[in-house]
Amino acid sequence: MVGSECLANPPILNASTGVGYLTNIAGVNSYVSGSPLAILTIVLISDIFGFEPPLLRKIADKVANHGYFVVVPDFFHGEPYNAENASRPLNSWLKDHNSTKGIETAKPIIEALKRKGASAVGVAGFCWGARTATKLGITKLVEASVILHPSSVTVDEIRGVEVPIAILAAEHDSFSPPKLIKKFKQVLDAKPEIDSYVKIFANVSHGWTVRYDPNDPKAVKDARKAHKIMINWFDRHLKK
């Protein structure tokens, strides 16, 4: 079961925000930012609120400013979770939008990006998106991954990851509490051939990197720290 943390601070959806533009990639509506001539691509996988929230697109623009072509696909095909629709409980919605379907959506997108010239693809998953990002690292469809305040990711899935992975977790998070994150670290430490980084951020809660209050200086600072680590991780493993 999924608790209230996943629903905290629901964003205002606005498909017109961001400096990028909307396009279709492998049949999936996507927000893209950065030069299409960039040979390094980052795919951002959203939380349950989909690809329209302004803060998510702001993150995409920030990553693009570091020389990447950034793609934020609509993994929910026009049906993000609507916190105001009480007639559709979250657990019911999740049955129709699980990580298996996430992989089915992601695979042709990544293949299309590589056909168009992407020499390497990194993936970052937020909350719901973390499990799909983790599974992409198991299949080696991407060259590096970052998962931020993950939801539903298991120890066995982390054990199966075959690409460099960074895990950015929250101190206050019932989905992936510090005890579980420490197990993730133990598993990764036992695989020194796979570069990994695990950090538990103090005094933050689930969703803090993508659903923060832009008018709260501390919240902005905490989110920016995570974004910087994410970008540095991609720089380290994709800009070779």
Results as ranks from 00 to 15, higher is better:
A170F: 11
V121C: 03
K140H: 00
I25A: 06
S196K: 05
P53Q: 02
L136T: 02
I167M: 12
E79D: 11
H77A: 00
I167C: 05
K179C: 02
R88Q: 12
W93R: 05
I231E: 13
P10Y: 11
N14H: 04
P11W: 08
D235G: 09
V204E: 13
R115C: 03
P150Y: 06
H227G: 08
T17I: 03
W208P: 02
F76L: 05
E84T: 08
D195P: 13
N65T: 10
I231D: 04
H206D: 13
P217T: 02
D222M: 00
A124S: 11
F126N: 11
E79C: 00
Q186I: 00
I158Y: 04
P164W: 12
R57S: 08
P89W: 05
N215D: 13
G3N: 15
E162N: 03
S151T: 06
P54A: 15
R159K: 12
E52Q: 15
V161K: 13
Y68N: 04
H237M: 08
E162I: 00
T23D: 09
E143I: 07
I12A: 12
T105E: 12
L40H: 15
K140F: 10
D74H: 09
W233Q: 08
G137W: 04
S99P: 14
K179P: 02
M1G: 14
E79M: 13
G3V: 01
P80L: 10
G137M: 02
K218V: 03
